[in-house]
Design a protein around this nucleic acid. Structure first.
Lengths: 349, 349
DNA sequence: GCCCTCGATGTTTACGTAAACATACGCGAC
DNA sequence: GTCGCGTATGTTTACGTAAACATCGAGGGC
C-alpha cells in the first residue's frame, strides 16, 4: 500500500490538507463552530472551544487562505513590481515596504522585471492582474509602462515610486530636487566657483531630477554650468567620469548623482593624484552605509528609504480601505545632507 | 447619485469584480464556455470564442486567482522568509529567486522578520503556514528557528539558505569553506607568514564557516593562528578592527569575512599610514560590485548569488512536482577568487 | 406552567472556477 | 429514415470558508 506523507503522525495525515470539515468531524461539532473558534468569535462555550482546539492541534489544521480570499474578496497581499533589487535604494525600499505591510497583516508579492521592455512590463502587469494582490506598488520609471496601451487593471490600487506621474497616480518619492539642491549649495557655500556633475542614466526619473536641480542652482547663482558627464549609476561609470574630470584643471567640486559613482570618482582622483578634498570636493547621493568608510568618508545626501516604504504602504492601505482608486498626487520625503570628509573649501578660495 | 469606480468605461464597471458569470451573460453563453475560452481549451467554435473574448474585453474580465487556487489546490507562489534585505547577498539572492521563479510561472511572497526573536520567527512561520504559498525558501540561520517547538507546517516544501541543517533540510549555499580557503591560501602563496582575520557575527553560519576554514588552512600549513578580531559585517566594525590591526607590526595580511568590513580595514589602514598592499594585504568576501572600485581595488572571493537563487528555485519546484518533502542534503555553489590590487607579496618576503 | 428570550450550535448558501457529466444537434452509414 | 457517433455547449458539483439564517434548549418572569 503506497502512501505518501505518512510520517507517523497520530491521526495519520495523508496526502491532502486538513479542512474545517475534518476538524469538525474529529471534534464532533459542525464546521461552522470550527470557523468560529478559528476566527476567535464569541459565542462558543469553553469546553467546545477546547475540543475544537485539540482537534486542530491533532490534525495540524491550517486555514486555507485561498478559500478565505475567495470568501472575503481580499488577499491581504500587496504586489511590488520592480526592475531590480540590485540597487541599495530599491532593496531598502522593498524591505521597508515588506516590514510595514507585515505589521498591517499584509504580505508582499514580488514581481521582478529583468529587462524593462514594453513586453515584459506588460506581461508583469497582466500576471499581476491575475495575481492574488489587493494593491500594487510600482518601483520603476512609470513612463516605461504607460506609453502605449498598457494600463493598470481597473480596481487595483496603485502607488508609484520614482516617477513624475503625480498627475495620474499616487507617487511617493524621495525629494530628489531638494536633495540635489542641498548638495550643490553646500559646495557653492564652501566657496567653489561652480560644480561639475556626473549624471545617472537618462531613463531614470530620479537621475533627471537631480541633474535638473543641479543646473537650476547653478543658474540661480549665476554660475557657469559645466557640461554634465553621463553615468549609469555604476562605480565604473563614475570612475570613467573621474578620469575625464581629473584632466579639467578648473574642476574643484563634483556632485555625483549617487554614491557608487562618487566611489568611482574617488578612485579615479586618487589614481590621478588629485587629492580629495584638498584639490577636489566630491558629494554623492543616497548615503549608502559604506559611504562613511570611503577614503575619504563621503559627504552625501541621505535618502530615507524606510520612510518611502512606509508611505507607500500607508498609501495603498488607504486606497484599499476607502475603496478609492489611486488619487493623483506626489508625496515627497525630505532628504538631509550628511557632511563628511570629501568636501572642503577650494584651496584658492 | 453617488457611485464609485464609475470612470466612464463602456459597460460601466461598478464596485465589484467581473466574474465568469458576468462575461457569460453578456456573451450569451454558459460560464463553462467562458472557462474554456479563458484556459484556451479546444472544442469551442471560433465564432463563440470571439464573442466571449469580446465580452471579456468589454467587461475587463480578469480571472480570480483565489478561486483558481481553491480549485486547483495550488497557488503558484513560493514564500521567502528572511531576516534582512539589507545585505548585498540576501537581496541578490532574492532577486535571483524571484527571477527564476517568475520564469517558471511562480510568484514570490516575501516575509521579512525584523528582529530574529523566537516569537517573531514563529509568528512568521505561522503566518506563512496560513499564507498562499506552495513552498518556502528560508534565508536565515536555521538554528534560530528550529530550537524549541517551532517547526515548518507539514506538507510545505522547504529549501534553506545559509545553514548547516543539511541533515534535516534541503540546503543551498555558497561553498563558504572553499571560498575562505582560496582567500587564505592566496595570501600564504604570496609569501605571507600568516593571515589575520576579521570575523562575521557569531550568529552567522556563513561567518562561522569562513572563520573555521581560515583556521584550518593556517593549521594545515603549520602557521601560527592569530587571535581573530570580531566584526558584525558592517564597515564600521571592519574599521575598528583595522585600527587595532594597524598597531600589530607583524600583521601583513588580513582576510575579512566580507567586503564591507574589508572596506573599513582599508580606511583604517589608510588613516594609520599603512599602505595597502605594500604594507598589508587585504582580502574580502562577496565581491560586491563596488569592490573593484575601492582604493585599492579589493581582492575578494566572488559569490554567485544568482546561482544560489536558481538552485533554490529548482529545489523547491522539484519538491512541489514530486510531492516529496524536503530531502536532506547540502548543495554547495562554488566560489572564485578575484585578484585585484589589495594583495601583494610582503615587503620582507 | 407557559411563553419569551437569549445563548450555543447546526444548516444553508455564496464566493469564482473548472472538472465531470449531461444534452442536443448534425452528419454519415446502412 | 433511423441509428450511432462525435462535436459544441450547458448543467451539476466540489474546492474551504464564513455570513446569514435556523434550531434547540435552558432559564426567568408572569
Amino acid at each position: 500500500m503506497v502512501e505518501r506523507g505518512g510520517s507517523g503522525v497520530p491521526g495519520g495525515r495523508r496526502k491532502q490538507r486538513v479542512s474545517m470539515a475534518d476538524v469538525a468531524k474529529l471534534a464532533g461539532v459542525s464546521s461552522q463552530t470550527v470557523s468560529r473558534v478559528s476566527n476567535g468569535h464569541a459565542g462558543v462555550i469553553s469546553s467546545t472551544r477546547e475540543q475544537v482546539l485539540a482537534a486542530m492541534r491533532e490534525l495540524g489544521y491550517r486555514p486555507n487562505s485561498a478559500a478565505r480570499a475567495l470568501r472575503y474578496g481580499r488577499f491581504n497581499t500587496i504586489g511590488v513590481i520592480l526592475f531590480s533589487l540590485a540597487s541599495t535604494g530599491n532593496s531598502r525600499t522593498v524591505e521597508a515596504i515588506a516590514t510595514h505591510a507585515a505589521a498591517e497583516g499584509y504580505a508582499i508579492t514580488l514581481i521582478p522585471i529583468d529587462v524593462p521592455t514594453q513586453d515584459n512590463v506588460l506581461g508583469a502587469f497582466t500576471r499581476m492582474g491575475e495575481l492574488a494582490v489587493d494593491a500594487v506598488i510600482v518601483i520603476m520609471e512609470i513612463h516605461l509602462v504607460d506609453t502605449g496601451t498598457v494600463q493598470l487593471p481597473p480596481g487595483v490600487h496603485v502607488v508609484v515610486v520614482d516617477s513624475d506621474a503625480g498627475d495620474r497616480y499616487s507617487v511617493v518619492d524621495t525629494d530628489q530636487a531638494e536633495g540635489a539642491r542641498k548638495a550643490v549649495r553646500h559646495l557653492l557655500d564652501l566657496g567653489h566657483r561652480t560644480v561639475w556633475h556626473v549624471t545617472g542614466p537618462e531613463t531614470s526619473f530620479a537621475g533627471q531630477r537631480r541633474t535638473q536641480a543641479w543646473r537650476e542652482v547653478l543658474e540661480e547663482a549665476g554660475r557657469p554650468v559645466p557640461p554634465p558627464l553621463h553615468g549609469d549609476w555604476s562605480a565604473e561609470s563614475g570612475y570613467a567620469a573621474g578620469l575625464a574630470l581629473a584632466e579639467q584643471d578648473g574642476c574643484t567640486a563634483v556632485f555625483a548623482s549617487n554614491d557608487q559613482m562618487a566611489l568611482g570618482l574617488l578612485r579615479a582622483f586618487h589614481e590621478r593624484g588629485r587629492r580629495v578634498p584638498e584639490d577636489v570636493s566630491v558629494v554623492g547621493f543616497d548615503d549608502i552605509p559604506d559611504a562613511a568608510f570611503f577614503v575619504p568618508p563621503l559627504t552625501t545626501v541621505h535618502q530615507d528609504f524606510a520612510e518611502v516604504g512606509r508611505r507607500c504602504v500607508r498609501g495603498v492601505l488607504q486606497q484599499i480601505r476607502t475603496g478609492d482608486g489611486s488619487p493623483p498626487g506626489t508625496d515627497l520625503v525630505p532628504t538631509s545632507l550628511v557632511v563628511r570628509g570629501s568636501t572642503a573649501a577650494p584651496r584658492s578660495g
